[in-house]
């Protein structure tokens, strides 16, 4: 099994790498569209600004490679910015995104007492069973750092929710694609468990 972690210059991939190494995964971190297309599984992480990230994905051909890989039906995991960019568009700089899942990334509404970015640990409530959450306790918390959140159009695409200002979708899944707004690679043992679940998916 060959896992490709997509490197498109959006943030530091070190913690994803160390977590995968800890899990003894066979993986490569690559900016080469060929490595994405040929992979058995793809992890699409990222921290940063949506428009800049989309510009890089277009310029490098990685965006097209991700769409091709996705059509092949193999497992794809988006993390953080990756969970927003798989949608149709983002409110951040009003950016057209990859469109792999119908939906929009939205900015948290302003409300006194709620600081944005949403940064720290928060509970992730599963909305329906999904292999990603196998063995993850219902009261588990994950580490978040973000100002925008994914909002898939279809209710059935929302697999977990978290409360901050409003209840928002913190994990989504459609066919072979799943994506999480939080950082499983920085979420302790439950996060490692989730990454392990993804590595075990077919």
């Amino acid at each position: 099994m060959r896992v490709t972690v997509v490197d498109y210059g959006a943030g530091n991939l070190k913690s994803v790498e160390t977590a995968l190494r800890f899990l003894s995964a066979d993986f490569t971190v690559s900016a080469d569209p060929g490595d994405v297309i040929r992979a058995d599984k793809v992890i699409f992480p990222g921290v940063g600004e949506a428009a800049a990230a989309m510009a890089t994905l277009k310029k490098t051909g990685l965006g097209e490679a991700l769409a091709l890989f996705h059509r092949g039906g193999r497992p794809l995991l988006g993390i953080c910015l990756g969970s927003q960019i798989v949608l149709d568009r983002s409110e951040e700089s009003d950016t057209a995104c990859l469109g792999l899942v119908p939906g929009t990334a939205r900015l948290f509404p302003k409300q006194p007492g709620f600081k944005v970015p949403h940064m720290g640990w928060n509970r992730v409530r599963p909305l329906r069973p999904h292999p990603l959450f196998a063995g993850v306790p219902e009261s588990a918390s994950f580490y978040f750092v973000h100002s925008y959140y994914p909002e898939p159009e279809a209710k059935e695409d929302r697999i977990a929710a978290t409360d901050y200002v409003i209840p928002f979708t913190s994990a989504l899944a459609r066919d072979n694609l799943c994506a999480v707004q939080f950082h499983p690679e920085k979420s302790g043992r439950v996060g490692l468990r989730m990454l392990g679940n993804f590595l075990a998916m077919n």
Partner: peptide, 8 residues
């Protein structure tokens, strides 16, 4: 440390 703990 990065290889050992998986929290920020």
């Amino acid at each position: 440390v990065a290889e050992t703990i998986f929290i920020p």
